[in-house]
């Protein structure tokens, strides 16, 4: 689930509010996106991919991270911000990740592999 909005990184562009398919965010009084309905988060990582300044962190769990979890601690997570957007290949000067896609290998394998009993 979405756990962290970095106030330092966020430029208040509202993109995450707009793109979240399950409408998790509201614009807070300070202009920052507030995680208003965390329970509706479907852990799809789309907000992370779209955030232009790598200001969001979606923890990999489908339930809320427990209090004190490192997955809610911005400082501990520094390296993880923007990771998914980088892999998708979005942002200035990057190559779309789809250029390197190897999904067809697995489709092929599924087609030809002997099935498990």
């Amino acid at each position: 689930m979405i756990e962290v909005v970095s106030a330092d990184r966020c430029v208040q562009c509202d993109v995450c509010i707009k793109v979240c398919p399950t409408d998790v965010f509201d614009r807070g009084p300070d202009g920052l996106p507030a995680i208003a309905r965390q329970g509706d988060c479907q852990t799809c990582f789309m907000c992370e991919a779209h955030c232009p300044t790598d200001a969001l962190y979606v923890a990999p769990f489908s339930g809320p991270a427990p209090a004190g979890s490192p997955h809610t601690d911005e400082a501990a997570l520094a390296g993880a911000f923007g990771e998914y957007r980088r892999i998708v290949g979005w942002g200035r000067g990057r190559t779309p990740g789809s250029r390197a896609d190897r999904n067809h290998i697995f489709t092929e394998r599924l087609r030809t592999a002997p099935r498990n009993p």
Binding site: V88, W90, P96, G97, S98, D101, N103, H104, T107
Partner: peptide
Amino acid sequence: RGLQGPEY
């Protein structure tokens, strides 16, 4: 033969 969802 494949499409990545976010890009597509």
